[in-house]
Computed example of a mutant assay.
Amino acid sequence: MFNILIIGSNGQLGSEIKELSKNYDYNFFFTDRTNLDITSKDSIKSFCEINSINTIINCAAYTAVDNAETDELNADLTNRKAVKKLALVSQELNIKLIHISTDYVFDGKNFKAYCEEFQTSPKTVYGKTKLDGENEMININPKNSIIIRTSWVYSFYGNNFVKTMLRLGKEKETLGVIFDQVGTPTYAAHLAKLILDILPQIKNDKVEIYNYSNEGVLSWYDFAKEIMKMAKLNCKINPIETFQYPTPAKRPHFSLLNKAKIKKEFNIEIPYWKDGLDDCLKRLGERK
């Protein structure tokens, strides 16, 4: 029996796991910062021992990409130090650890999809602290543990690009959206199901890294166009370049992830990005 500790259970991915949990014969323990301090190794270890935890899914992260540029201390606390403590407890108590990372560990200058072993070179504080967290986990090397890198996450829950576009699409007649940043959205419900489905198959001596997003290739402009189309909103989407929408943190121009490894090793099929968007809009009551 899996006794699973979900960390960051109120975020997009954690919330989707919570919704799916009723479909699985696992015991779930959902926590957030109010009932478990992941910056304290003693707190993590005590919780795991009391509840006989044998699996941890870490959905917690400092994800405010622009804020991280001036708040490196807190980004590092959640994205590196907490991951190190989770990995140490996992190693000591023989716990399976699934940790969620990001496409931001790459520099976004590639012209072909990033494989797991490609050279990392983060260009933001967020990406650097997430890579540092990966490296802490790899160095500690808890058995039967994996890192999943993902991109462009959205969900029925929380704040995300899809919800922002729906809101602006109702308020504005035209909207400029960046067309020169290319990647693939990840529907958090699909990622949540993937994680829960592969849990029994995760058996490895060294920490493995896997990429996961939905299938397909598009820009933020293409994504916004499809949101308006599916929701039947009359807002006109105009393509703009990255320099026309400056942000404190530099976004990767290319963050397409190669998912061949996770598909082969766990024998899975990954849904197309439009299928994820269709489902999300239906749940939001916005699919027309």
Rank of each mutant, 00 (worst) to 15 (best):
G11R: 00
F223S: 09
N258Y: 07
C59Q: 05
F243W: 13
C48F: 11
T63E: 10
T34S: 14
I140N: 03
E265P: 01
K84E: 15
V83S: 05
K236A: 12
Y210E: 12
N141E: 09
D37C: 11
I53F: 02
E49W: 02
G158H: 01
I95E: 06
I138K: 08
F266Y: 08
S219P: 04
A188K: 00
V217P: 01
R283N: 14
F30R: 03
N51K: 13
E134H: 02
D76N: 15
A231P: 05
K274S: 11
M137S: 05
T184N: 09
M165H: 01
E241W: 03
D279L: 15
H253A: 14
N74T: 10
A188G: 12
A75Q: 06
E208R: 06
I178C: 08
I4S: 04
I38M: 09
K263E: 14
K261T: 07
A189M: 07
G216R: 02
G158S: 13
P252D: 09
P248A: 08
E265H: 06
N214S: 14
L86D: 01
V83H: 01
D76E: 14
M1G: 12
N54C: 10
M137F: 06
E19H: 10
N144K: 07
C115T: 12
I6W: 00
D25L: 10
S15K: 02
N144P: 06
P271L: 06
R283Y: 13
T39A: 10
I4Q: 00
Y212Q: 11
E49C: 11
D25S: 13
T242K: 09
A61N: 13
S40V: 08
D32A: 03
L257F: 08
K225S: 11
S101M: 01
L73H: 12
D275P: 03
L194Y: 02
D37Q: 09
S151D: 11
K96M: 12
F243Y: 14
A68S: 15
N234I: 10
T120E: 10
K232D: 15
V162C: 13
D42G: 10
K259N: 13
K96T: 09
Q91L: 12
F156K: 15
F47K: 07
E72N: 09
K45I: 08
F29P: 02
T120R: 02
A87T: 08
T129Q: 05
R283V: 08
Y24P: 13
L86T: 04
G276P: 10
E173S: 15
N51Y: 07
L77I: 09
W152S: 13
K96V: 06
F179A: 11
K193W: 01
V177C: 04
W220K: 14
K261Y: 04
T63D: 15
N110D: 08
N214L: 08
L77S: 15
F29N: 04
L284G: 12
L131E: 02
T70W: 01
C280G: 06
S145K: 05
L191H: 05
K263D: 09
N267A: 14
G14F: 02
I178N: 00
E69V: 07
K250R: 13
S46K: 15
N79S: 12
Y24I: 11
I98G: 03
Y62A: 13
V83Y: 00
Y126D: 06
N211W: 01
V153F: 03
R167V: 01
F161K: 08
E92T: 09
M228R: 05
I98Y: 00
M1R: 03
S52W: 00
I7R: 00
K96G: 07
N258P: 08
